[in-house]
Design a protein around this nucleic acid. Structure first.
Lengths: 235, 235
DNA sequence: GTCTATATGTAGATAGAC
DNA sequence: GTCTATCTACATATAGAC
């Protein structure tokens, strides 16, 4: 396996900051891969389909993305820095306030960046959000996802432990991980929620809402869940 | 697409109840498919691999399972009746008691059958539990899973509405669906919980616990979450 | 940088021998 | 019932022309 970071990057930017043609093509390939992987998963997509979606030929995908596995990992990694930075920013902002942060504040700060991208206007970021929601249930990507996401998760766990020292770490971790799973599941669950929300007798079709419609319910749910499951947390 | 129920069932049982040879082979094929689909998903498995795992040849899988899609749906459906029956039994048992059931009772009753199979001794049932946990994040199977599982989910939602009439149905549904997602995620999350539970400074390797170790934490979390997210529920 | 052409393997499905 | 053989399509990957 080659170093994917070096692939297809003979040049990257011109002095004036505009992208060279190769870089624009590379973006098109990665964007197409991101959309398709999000929709159908790693095994459900062929490189040919990615090439077709990107409007390039087969060889071009190989040139810019390397092997299929390289390409997939590149997609996973590409947006992590932005998300991590944003989560660290919201955490720092919380810490800079006079009043001590509550558990709900911390949860909201962790979730806000993800919920924004999952429901925002950029279809590529939305695809990335769906992709992450999809792969957490697959052991195959566990180590990779862990390396990318757990460092910031640890910072938040430490912040929670600051406001509730003496709390059992494993219980807190369990409840926190359940909360992250709850957050990710909302992306795929809006359809099911809509379906179960209409009464059986109603003939009207269920219309799934936007992720943001469930935002407050989600955060309430997670905060209430953690506080119940972890004895010793302040209320 | 053919009627898969008719495939490979020229004969099923002898008068004395023992399985004929064809039925035993069919079981081997379905069991192998169940294990592999659970591990790698629909697109990650080839019919040839299933044949190899089952110790039969390619044609035999086609004979007993029909097309790959038929086979997958058969796997999804095969164990639903058992699970639904068990959930209805725990609900009925709860209703037969003198004291009114609490939300936590109802949640525990709904989750118990799944948690049992996810952690029990039968590897095939465990595989099925993992398979269900995997496919809920995939829109592709939504309608199928809905038809199989939502009827019983509605019965539980109605039972909750009985003890808390006047509650906003959509908020309750949202919180309930989040709880189901939490339950399913625990299967895949024990590794991540173990990883985040050890302090960064510790060099000791993280050892994931059994699903049952997290059972009480999970149910507390879900009950606390629903009660927080749905105003008007009795505490 | 991009594209064509192709090497090499594997996919799902099934017809027909046993 | 089971297995062999084979059809057709599509997979990943890459070498080399432009």
């Amino acid at each position: 396996m080659e170093n994917s970071a070096a692939l297809g990057r003979a040049e990257t930017q011109r002095e004036d900051g505009r992208l060279v043609r190769g870089e624009a093509t590379r973006e098109r390939v990665l964007d197409a891969a991101e959309r398709l992987f999000a929709e159908r998963g790693f095994d459900g997509v062929s490189i040919r389909q990615i090439a077709g979606e990107a409007g390039v030929t087969l060889g071009v995908v190989g040139f810019h993305g390397g092997s299929k596995l390289d390409l997939f990992k590149t997609i996973l990694e590409r947006r992590v820095a932005t998300l991590n930075t944003e989560r660290r920013r919201t955490l720092a902002e919380l810490r800079s306030r006079r009043a001590a942060a509550t558990l709900r504040d911390l949860l909201a700060a962790y979730m806000a960046p993800y919920l924004e991208i999952a429901s925002g206007g950029d279809p590529q970021w939305r695809a990335y959000a769906r992709l992450i929601a999809r792969i957490v249930s697959d052991d195959r990507w566990y180590e990779h996802v862990r390396d990318l996401y757990d460092p910031v998760a640890r910072e938040y766990l430490d912040a929670i432990l600051e406001i509730a020292p003496g709390v059992d770490r494993e219980r807190l971790v369990t409840a926190f991980v359940l909360s992250v799973a709850s957050m990710l599941s909302i992306v795929a669950s809006t359809i099911r929620i809509a379906g179960l929300s209409v009464d059986e007798s109603q003939s009207g079709r269920a219309v799934p809402g936007n992720v943001l419609d469930y935002r407050e319910t989600l955060i309430d749910y997670c905060a209430g869940g953690i506080e119940r499951a972890v004895p010793g947390l302040p209320r």
